[in-house]
Design a protein around this nucleic acid. Sequence first.
RNA 1: GCCCGGGUGGCGGAAUGGCAGACGCGGCGGACUCAAAAUCCGCUGUCCGUGAGGGCGUGUGGGUUCGAGUCCCACCCCGGGCACCA
Length: 851
Amino acid sequence: MPRPDTEDDVDRSDAVVERYDPQSIEPRWQAYWQEHGTYEVDNDDPRQRAYVLCMYPYPSGAAHMGHVRNYTFGDLLTRYRTMCGEAVLSPMGFDSFGLPAENAAIRTGRHPREFTDERIEELRSSITRIGGVYDWRREVRSHDPAYIHWTQWIFLQLFEAGLAYRGFATVNWDPVDQTVLANEQVLPDGTAERSGAVVEQRDLEQWFLRITDYAEQLLDDLDGLEWPERVVVQQRNWIGRSEGVEFEMPIVESDGSPRSDVPDGAAVRVFTTRVDTSFGMTFCVLAPEHPLVEQIVTPEHRAPVEAFVARSRSTSEVDRLAVEGDLSGRGCATGAWARNPFTGRAVPVYLADYVLGSYGTGAVMAVPGEDQRDWDFATAFGIEIITTVQRPDGFEGQAYTGDGPHVHSPDPSAGLDDGCDLNGLDVATAKQVATEWLVDRGLGEAVVNYRLRDWLISRQRFWGCPIPILHCDTCGIVPVPLDQLPVLAPDDVEFTPTGQSPLQSHQGFLNATCPTCGGPARRESDTMDTFVDSSWYFLRFCDPWSAQAPFRREAVEAWMPVDQYIGGAEHAVLHLMYARFMTKALSDLGVAPPELREPFHRLFTQGMIRLDGTKMSKSKGNLVAPEQIIDTLGADTLRLGHLSVKPPEEDVDWEAVGLEGCARFLHRVWRLALPGATPDLTLHDGPAEDDLTRGTHRLVAEVTAAFDRWSYHVAIARCMAFVNDLQRAARSPDGVSRSGFDHAVDTLLLLLAPAAPHIAAELWARRHGGDHVHEQSWPVADPAMLVEETTTLVVQVDGKVRDRIEVPTSSDEAACVAAALASAKVVELLGGAAPARVVARPPKVVNVVTS
RNA sequence: GCCCGGGUGGCGGAAUGGCAGACGCGGCGGACUCAAAAUCCGCUGUCCGUGAGGGCGUGUGGGUUCGAGUCCCACCCCGGGCACCA
């Protein structure tokens, strides 16, 4: 059946030139790489090893532009470093537990596993169509029983070591997703990062991982990482180390005499980072939930205090910490007094909701002169303000937090014979002296506090890794024996619209036998935060076949740490902190090698894709489908679009991606490089032109340098400029030599192989009898070829460019100056006068100074 | 408020203290074509000038230097993080 003639007419008219058709090329090469295992590496590979890893994705179906961007950078690096002779481990897997699948199950009644497996296949196919190459033999999925087994095994190791524990805690409850959230998953405005619901406070028993044990290491080891400064700063802030002093303030009467109605030794223990300002303390503040409140409140204050405490307890932590404007409703007097050890005087004890029981000692000394919040509080409650640090001249603020000499100490009225004298000292020195003074008298000690809290991993969800614990009435909390792992969620579950996890009511799952006493036990129905799964997957990739342990140590030694980790910056304090903690914990437990203290040596965070100025996302419905572009322009064009649009770490507006220009460029490369498809070129058999050879070497040097500093957009721009020049030269009447041309084109194909792998592979194979471009060595520029014979000498007069002269590159200063002074322009501008001075930087620039 | 980034044509952006605007997009003009698409060629910071050419130009104001987009100081604006965690 003859097809109606449409565009076929055109094809026949210039049948000499086979047009670049990505659809016929790309699937073939994708299959080739897969079938030949081109990017599979074994753990005993003799080459130098490199581990290049992109954050494994949540399987959300077909890839979106964010995936494309992420995987293009990772894939380029894998291919580039492989051509450089390294054995590159480039695995891929799926972070396949999580709420979207469970929400879909609630909506449709289908089991999340089915849903998830389908989405994984879709995503895998998308990633392949982008041209991403991975060692798929190593694929891991969080919901795979083998993976669940080892996640649970790791949890039990942590449990045995005391790093996993069950604790009662006031937690963030998401009423929409019906689960608790980690602090990291709550946004500063008090809403849930995922669901957007207003987070409530609930008191629940939950599982925690003791990440705070590692606070100091997590902070210190940041120094050795080659990570974006932004991410390091965010982690540092999140850990929130602060050095300070704790000391006790005995509860007394307002005149300093002992108080009879409180137990002996009753004292407020305060934490402060400004012990140097202790002489300015005019009151102290307890958290409303502080256990001492009950004992010290005086009868006439009891009623308002109880009301205040009740109100604070129902306020979220975020709201409590938001101190803005008038503070008069935020505090409450207790009627009690406590003695300041520095002055010997009693100061009133208040409650304030912005003081948290969970940080420091739950009590602070208040120094309104040097702390703005204390100033605001003192003003609201009519409390005295004393200045202890000399203000600089012209200071017009309220509290002064800067440096300066200390004043007003010791208080002469205190009559202490061993008073602490800080007068005249700067803040740092005064802190030291005051700390020593306290320590020497046994009144307090230096301490370090962290803002970081333990990692709450309990989730009241179904589609997650079950926590392998049993609750026995007799024995209490009992770990599931290792030989009974994995604990898997049942298949016969029904998802109800209430959203409650089916695990909480599934008797077959809940009922178990206590392995210790043989009595009945109830299975833990909470599952783990999915960040637990992603906190060790990079280790499993080293040895996904291991059946006796999560991974064998020697396999991890072969590959870890990850040389280059690539992902989104939104994981700065979540995944990246948890993975660092888990690596350290596993190292300490002897599961991972002892010397492996950090998982990711280098981190790269690529920018987001935006459309119309907002983040592209399914919920906003503003997606541009990568598949559509692959179907029309091809994957190589799409990859090039991402690579060339902007520096990779910056956010990208999709409108800025110049796909047409990239497609044009590839068409041009095709016509230039396809043997026999170049009728408009003039190629002769003479020796290679020096200019052309030098240009080719310069291109190699520039592209390599650009790759090494992640300036892909510059690398692509250089290739484009090179093609423009080459095409122009080859089309000129004189043409170029065949040998110089072929060298130029072959080099270009090698340089493009990591960025546009399909077209490079196709053209290389056609030019070289079926050879595979990705198995060639990355070209190296000959330094001797980078030096031009002549160069443009820029001639300036008084710093302004007035002339340009071609000179031999070897010209010395005298020759350059002579050439410059001989310039007609310079002669004219000098008007016969002698230059006042001549500065030369041979052979690039000469500046003639006239005055 | 503090700490990081960043301000360069109509747009995305290049530029070891030495030719600002590479490369791409967009725009304008031309070649090919019956015509269009595709492709190719030329122009494209701004002002003055018919032209050759010249003036002005990298957020603002100072400074260092023979020479500053690049270094220093102050300020303005944008983006991100932290923030009243004692």
